[in-house]
Amino acid sequence: MKFYKPKSLLELFETSEKIEGKKYFLAGGTDINVQIKNGIIKDESIIFLNHLTELKGVLQSDNHIIIGALASFRGIIESKLLKNKLPFFQNSLQEFASPLIQTTATIGGNIANGSPTADVVPLLLVLNAKLKLFSKSKLREVPISEFYLGYKKFILKRNEIIGAVLIPENAETGYETFYKKIGSRKALTIAKLAIAGLKRISNNKIEDIKLAVGSLNEYPRRLYKVEEYLKNKTVDEIDFFELESQLKKEITPITDLRSDKEYRYQVCVNLIRTFLNH
């Protein structure tokens, strides 16, 4: 194993460019250390990030809340700014892992780890968050919904990292919110499925709705087809048979040691129904 501890962002990119072969960016280390212990990561190079304070913190800029990729979950949960602006987002993350893991785990790590169960991603999806990607010569923004390409596959280019998460400051305003994480227990749990939702009702009609799920696909996804189907309907107009047929096009639950595909599917349906007050 080779290690690099760049002194600055610039040095980070210079170092990264020089490394051939597979490499890992180590942020909080809550997942990579487990992978090392289990022999999944063996000889690959490791670049330490966590000391780069420029990627930490939560701040307001124009009409966005910017969360540094290296912001810890504890930092997010305790942030006064988020308490004011994005309380739903903040509250939902209380269920992330455990208070001990929250101290070290980072939001960037949760996203870049690429797990289908990543807790923060369904929330970011419904909040229309964007990721700010940094590379040596370029900064670019991509919607989180376009970040994942497949299981542990990202839009990230070689030597590009997630620098920050941008959430519109009024992303929650005017919406009814919904978040459920279903695990084998109430803390220290990996989601069997998770669902986040925002909806706005006007004149009994669903004027706007945003739904996103985790652990039901190769990566967390928005349910655009279901949303499309639901928009501009009153609750009574919803044909749940049709809703399910749209949902089936968008989720691909599996059976594993943790749960069963039939269960995951049905609970997803039930939770959507409950969110729609049906």
């Binding site: 280390g29 250390n33 330490f48 001990l100 101290t103 070290t104």
Partner: peptide
């Protein structure tokens, strides 16, 4: 405690 906050020391590396 790491800088006053509780952490699992099995997941914290020397560099941190």
């Amino acid at each position: 405690l790491l800088d006053g906050k509780s952490v699992t020391s099995c997941l914290v590396n020397a560099v941190h």
